[in-house]
Amino acid sequence: MATTQAIQVESLSKRYGKNVQALNQVSFEVGRGELFGLIGPDGAGKTTLIRILATLLLANEGQALVNGWEVRRDYRKIRSHIGYMPGRFSLYQDLSVEENLHFFATIFGTTIEENYELIRDIYVQLEPFRKRKAGKLSGGMKQKLALCCALIHKPVVLLLDEPTTGVDPVSRQEFWEMLKRLKEKEITILVSTPYMDEASLCDRVALIQKGNILSIDKPAGIVSAFDKPLLAVRTNDMYRLIHDLREFESTHSAFPFGEYVHLALRNAIWPEAIHAYLAGKEHTDIEIKPAQATIEDAFMELMTQE
């Protein structure tokens, strides 16, 4: 295998016990300096995949290379050159912001000063709290600190497991902006998330469900693969609406989407026909408008095909 790719995964499978197939023949590649998203619901196998790449779990079958190193054999090399941020906040809560950073810098054989350039944008926000214990930080701040700690040794590859789960929307946005800036410094980033809206912020994404990769493409490519007419529908009784829409003859699929239900149609029909159908089912305040397909629609579509 050539070592031009930052991450190469080939037919990777992982079972827990006899019955749980966490990963099933997963293959993909991540190029150098790419921001690659792993999108999927809880239990899809994202954490397992990232842990295998971080040399913390062994796969049952298949091969995985990080920066050209094999995860089983060359685990020591990989451990010195990757940054890994687990899904759960895993810093020392009774150590201050500064002490945590200093600790991780030292165990990776570097100093804060040496790579300060890399974390400066993030760390300036933490600087006012540098004497505060990590356990007393807000959720967003914790994640920023964890990112700093994972970055402080200037890793070649950064593995982030659901870094934005449980973080407020503003901090989430800030976090993604930071990832974009890191990309410019030629760090390869593999990030997993259950939030579909974050997919569009990646260079490429892999949609993963129940251990299978459903699709790998640029975000735009995944959206454009969705070719059904799409409408956003809203009435007074949203719960009954989904049920009723799914019974409608022209309906391909109907899923809740924020305040609306996204209705994908088998064939193009006039919205008036749907209006009439819903009115017949005693819905009021009916609102129907055309909708732009998103990654989430594409993902739902792929999931129903499975």
Partner: peptide, 13 residues
């Protein structure tokens, strides 16, 4: 329990 072992294991220590 706190998950810090995971980070330590993934380090060169």
């Amino acid at each position: 329990e706190l998950g810090t072992m995971e980070v330590l294991l993934a380090s060169p220590l």
